[in-house]
Simulated scan of single mutants.
Amino acid sequence: MSGTFDDAGLELLSDSLRVVGRIGSTVVRRTGWWSPAVHDLLAHLERTGFAESVRFLGLDADGNEVLTWIEGVSGERAWAQVVPEAGLAEYARLIRRYHDAVQDYMPPADREWMTEAHGLRVGEIITHGDVGPWNTVWRDGRAVGLLDWDQAGPRPALHDIGYALEYAAPFRDDAFCLDHLAHPAPPDRGRRMRLFAAAYGLDSVDGLVDAVIAQQETTLANTLRLAARGLHPHAEWVAGGFAAAQQARIDWSRANRHLFA
């Protein structure tokens, strides 16, 4: 199978410049220096029976990776799935199931990750790294899939938790929540953070606001670094003003931490 844009039956999926498209029940995506590490991770998840990850099927004739397609609601439409409290709890449990699946995973020491230039350290797991609602797949209120593993890498589990909470608590002002995140009313952020933490299995929410801010800062630094290497779509994001927008989000999180008590 070839994954070029000239293929008959190729359906382009999104504006991500890393995505080639869908062919039937498979997704064809471009690869990078991090891809062998991700392929090892996906093989581990398949061996351990983590049903919600895509499966790596190999490389096509053009060197693109071929992955399984997970049917359901994802992308922009998945945002609304984490707004109800039942969906929020389901989202947290999905992330916990993934973290449990990689708790004992030891990747090959020579693998390179997209953003992490070190091996697995004490207290770290291989986090997903981009576990926003848009990378989840839903059917009938159940989280059945986790997509886009490019940013996986060795980090504390709190990185994924903070990343998810930024969008699920969420760490945005009321107007943005109503206009863009499918909230019918201003969210009770503290309640949502406590519900997420309990569903994930945390004993308290202590340190979670700081975890969100830390991953926001990490996201800014990593995006700038990848853009400087000419990686797409990061270079386009930075050219479009990402750095200033991300710093504004960090500043908002610091100034409004009282909303999450």
Results as ranks from 00 to 15, higher is better:
223 T>S: 13
12 L>E: 15
256 N>Y: 11
14 S>V: 09
149 W>C: 05
147 L>M: 03
144 V>D: 02
259 L>I: 01
125 I>D: 01
144 V>A: 07
199 A>R: 01
93 R>A: 13
216 Q>P: 00
99 H>T: 11
250 I>C: 00
253 S>W: 00
141 G>D: 03
136 T>P: 09
194 R>E: 13
55 R>G: 05
142 R>K: 03
104 D>S: 12
135 N>W: 07
197 A>L: 09
167 Y>D: 13
112 E>Y: 05
112 E>R: 14
198 A>K: 01
26 T>Y: 10
50 F>A: 10
38 V>Q: 02
218 T>D: 08
197 A>M: 09
34 W>F: 06
221 A>D: 12
174 D>S: 07
171 F>T: 05
229 R>G: 04
218 T>N: 11
18 R>K: 14
159 H>T: 03
106 M>Y: 00
26 T>H: 03
14 S>E: 14
227 A>R: 05
54 V>T: 14
168 A>G: 08
243 A>P: 08
32 G>Y: 10
32 G>E: 03
253 S>Q: 03
196 F>M: 08
100 D>A: 13
113 W>P: 05
73 V>Q: 04
183 H>D: 14
161 I>R: 13
225 R>A: 15
239 A>S: 12
95 I>N: 14
17 L>F: 02
229 R>N: 11
9 G>T: 11
50 F>G: 11
148 D>K: 10
94 L>I: 10
178 L>P: 12
28 V>G: 02
247 Q>K: 08
147 L>C: 00
131 V>K: 02
185 A>I: 06
